[in-house]
Design a protein around this nucleic acid. Structure first.
Lengths: 193, 193
DNA sequence: CCTATTTTGTACTCATCGGTACATAATGTT
DNA sequence: AACATTATGTACCGATGAGTACAAAATAGG
């Protein structure tokens, strides 16, 4: 009935996510976006609305896939301790594969946009809540199985792990010193003793 | 011999620091700066060089005064544990007085500028190193006096405290939930048990 | 094959960006 | 009081920002 889209919306969104991830929201121009997404300006506006809306879509896509990735990663190991080692070491090793060393888009957004824009405060807050919930369940399981000491408070410990993840993300982004970060990542696990 | 400056350079720099602190580097315009600093554009350029140079000066002033403030805060308490409680609770309570809830300028810079600008990676890295050193000394003292258990590794624990401080700063900035943050801040101290 | 409909590329809009030229005002020295 | 020197305010610069108008191109249905 009409002329079809010449680009894949998911791919374009993924490319946009990368750019925002690398440069931040303010420092990313529409020119950067169209170039990396491989589409023209009007196509971008027609498909996504505008810079802010595009960023929102990119951030939502990020949180979704990131949480799925983390959930799988935490599930894949043989013990609670191994799960967390895998998670934190993974952050250090360039996020285990396809992710560049630009920290966590969600953390970046917490710093750049959340204080002035409640929409992004909500989205990032939700991400944090769900990440903490994943940690809490994991700790709960570990305590039930006897792997972890019974005196831990699962909720508090989970919050502390989230806090550590945020700190590690920022540290890795600012100064990607693998050796240093690996030590810190290992040290985080002493929280479980 | 000549016409003197009509503004106080320290005050102007302090005002600039505040603006960068609140809005971030990219989102701050020269207009924002001149307005809040109460000076004209040419005066700003004559006195500070340009936006980047002004930011550098503001960041250096921040790190300097912040480290002095933290050092005093840590020294003022009667025990190591009380020192750290004071420090972390202080971050939550709106930085104990004169600081708004915009996190730590240094952490903000680690996220926004450090990955793309080695000058700021260096400045923020130095800040982090010195903060960690303050923590390490404190822990060392606590272990010597017998307040802290002997099995702690002062360096590792200090790094973990720095990581937690970063995480708490980001969390507070994004979603200033005092009650939540207070709990997390208290939980951080379990690292010392 | 023709037409209605949507996408695409080019070229623009206006606002704002960081930075500056220049004339005027204010000082210390003589 | 006159001058050299520096600070200030106005008014500007070219570049770039996000967003859009419009015509050409590409499809599906008739």
């Amino acid at each position: 009935m009409v002329r079809p889209r010449e680009f894949d919306e998911q791919e374009a969104l993924s490319a946009a996510m990368r750019v925002f991830w690398e440069k931040g929201y303010e420092a990313t121009s529409m020119g950067d976006l169209t170039e990396r997404m491989g589409i023209g300006r009007p196509s971008l506006y027609a498909a996504f609305g505008g810079k802010r809306e595009l960023f929102e879509a990119a951030l939502r896509a990020y949180t979704k896939s990131s949480l799925v990735y983390i959930e799988n990663k935490l599930r894949s190991a043989t013990s609670v301790r191994q799960s967390l080692i895998g998670y934190f070491q993974g952050m250090v090793d360039g996020s285990a594969g396809n992710n560049p060393d630009f920290g966590c888009l969600c953390v970046n957004t917490m710093v750049e946009l959340a204080p002035h824009d409640s929409l992004f405060a909500d989205i990032t807050g939700e991400y944090q809540t769900r990440l903490t919930e994943l940690f809490r369940q994991l700790i709960d399981n570990g305590m039930r199985s006897g792997e972890l000491p019974g005196r831990l408070n699962p909720s508090s410990t989970a919050r502390l792990l989230t806090l550590s993840a945020i700190g590690l993300s920022v540290t890795m982004k600012a100064k990607p010193d693998r050796e240093y970060a690996k030590q810190v990542a290992a040290e985080i696990l002493t929280l479980l003793e």
